[in-house]
Design a protein around this nucleic acid. Structure first.
Lengths: 150, 150
DNA sequence: GTAATTTCTCAACCTAACTTGAGGTCAAGG
DNA sequence: CCTTGACCTCAAGTTAGGTTGAGAAATTAC
């Protein structure tokens, strides 16, 4: 292995635990930008190990690849990212994560209310219409659950 | 509309907010079992409104269709499910939901630790290897983030 | 110098949960 | 009766996040 000519895709795969195919896929999605050696093979910076680790973690947090890409784009392109750069990103993580937890908790509270009434019945049931998307779309569920008004 | 001959797929779609194609898909997945009228069209019971509402809600909780099917299979096939029947199911919801919340909170705690050290760096970082799947798979990430031991 | 690995590209396949389209039938209103 | 509009089936397309395979070229190991 040549000294300091960058990491091969296989080396990167072994050290991140990712499949080679996954790494190539991530490149296609713009998450990493390896260069090519004389023979046309991909060569990676050591900093890419960190980028890929980040990808793995961010996925555990439920981020999509485009979202992860956005986060990674905030990193300095030129210099190697410092711990401070990464820490800035984890703040973004944090708020996103808090959001998701809050959503689930809200759902849980609604569920608790519904266990009491045993309903899951619309249109009263808060579970059915927790104010997400398309509130006033006009078509939504109206007289559900068989207790129609006619 | 004939009296009490069951609901058409379109009526069901309007009242649940689901697409007709989605309802047919759910049937294919075994979530509902309409019968057919003389002309071969699907006819649904009123109780199916509740079943479909349940499907919608369960999906918000992150259940997959096969999982939802399992839950629905616990409902009495013959008689119309009572509130009690539904309440029994929401207990299953509850524990599942608690699990997911706990997982996220664990992740968040790890993240908080990592904001401090700014690392996201392996193999120390708890975020990277939160003890899920394939713990001793042998191949995992080892000396990551550029601080290799050689 | 040759054999064994790696790597390359590109196209096709995979799962989940649906949607869309083609071509044909059923049902309801005037 | 006849025209819409709702329905039917079946095949194929869609998105996300990859994997698999073929055939060829590069690299490494002995």
């Amino acid at each position: 292995m040549a000294i300091s000519e960058g990491l091969s895709i296989g080396a990167l795969a072994r050290r991140t635990g990712l499949a080679v195919s996954a790494i190539r896929y991530y490149e296609a999605q713009g998450l990493i930008q390896p260069w090519r050696n004389a023979g046309g093979q991909r060569r990676f910076q050591r900093a890419d190990l960190r980028r890929l680790s980040f990808v793995i973690i961010a996925q555990k947090f439920g981020f999509t690849l485009p979202e992860i890409r956005e986060l990674l784009d905030r990193l300095p392109g030129k210099r190697t990212p410092t711990p401070k750069d990464w820490a800035a990103i984890s703040v973004a993580f944090r708020s996103r994560l808090d959001q998701r937890i809050e959503t689930l908790e809200k759902l849980r509270d609604n569920l608790d209310g519904c266990i009491g009434c045993g309903c899951l019945s619309m249109p009263k049931c808060a579970l059915y219409n927790p104010d997400d998307k398309a509130k006033a779309k006009g078509v939504g569920p109206r007289y559900l659950m068989g207790d129609s008004p006619d």
